[in-house]
Amino acid sequence: MSSSPLRQRPALLRISMVALLMLWSLAPMLWQLYTSLRTPESLLAGLAGLGGGWTLANYSAVLQADPPFGVYLLNSTVVGALSTLLTLALAIPCAYALSRRSDLLKLVIGGGLLAAAVFPYVLLFLALLQVARQLGLANNLLALCLPYAGLSLPLAVLLLQAAFADLPVELEENALLEGFSLGQRLRWILLPLIGPAVVSTGLLVFLFSWNEFPIALTWLSRSELLTLAPAMARIAGSSVFTVPHGAFAAATVLGGVPLLALLLIFQRQIVAGLTQGAIKG
């Protein structure tokens, strides 16, 4: 900001560091974008044929495939949204009750939640798959919400519990004196006040459910039911050597854009949720 010679060198250093960071973070996605807009021949020609060879054919191929790519996006959105709602519906009462206790049970539950939040959930897929088969939930898109909510609950409860605990207790006590029922207190006083925490928790749950792979992979086999993650894997698994790179790239771009939008719109809430999770958890 200042033009003194002493300050210029750090600024220059910083600009180059920031540029490097952006290159590192975005270059892979930009390369996908570039690839998705090129014809197969021009890709094999290397950097020489930059003049021509631009095309939207990759996108139309992906969007008109069977099933069209949009179906995966829609499936992921539906599962993500429903899982988020289910998680919040279960986590909010639990977090509220937990925040109002101060006994051994709270310590036990809190410790269990912490352990579960760190647990590599991929270990659970086989047993969950067996349960799904027994209950006839395989190939049922909406049933995915159950394991997703279960897996998201530890972090969600911890985050919301911390938010409830941060509220001044007199606010609820006053509502109690005014004769509000538990539902009224939550609806009119507590939830509006922890709104930001609810939003950031919901976003984290949505991102998890949108991206989840092993359970979706094993529960879903009908291609029109696939969510984005297993669909990508299926595309990748189709062949390693005769790959239609352009179409793949178009798929990654289409799969990435919704998240980029989400990230840019809700960046503050997502960052808050992530860091709160670390600090409070």
Partner: peptide, 25 residues
């Protein structure tokens, strides 16, 4: 702020999406 959220993009993308991307890269 913008750099912070853009640099978060790799984390937000589904692993399978970016794994497919890396195969091509």
């Amino acid at each position: 702020g913008l750099v912070r959220s853009l640099s978060l993009l790799p984390w937000a993308l589904p692993t399978t999406v970016m794994a497919l991307g890396w195969r091509w890269i």
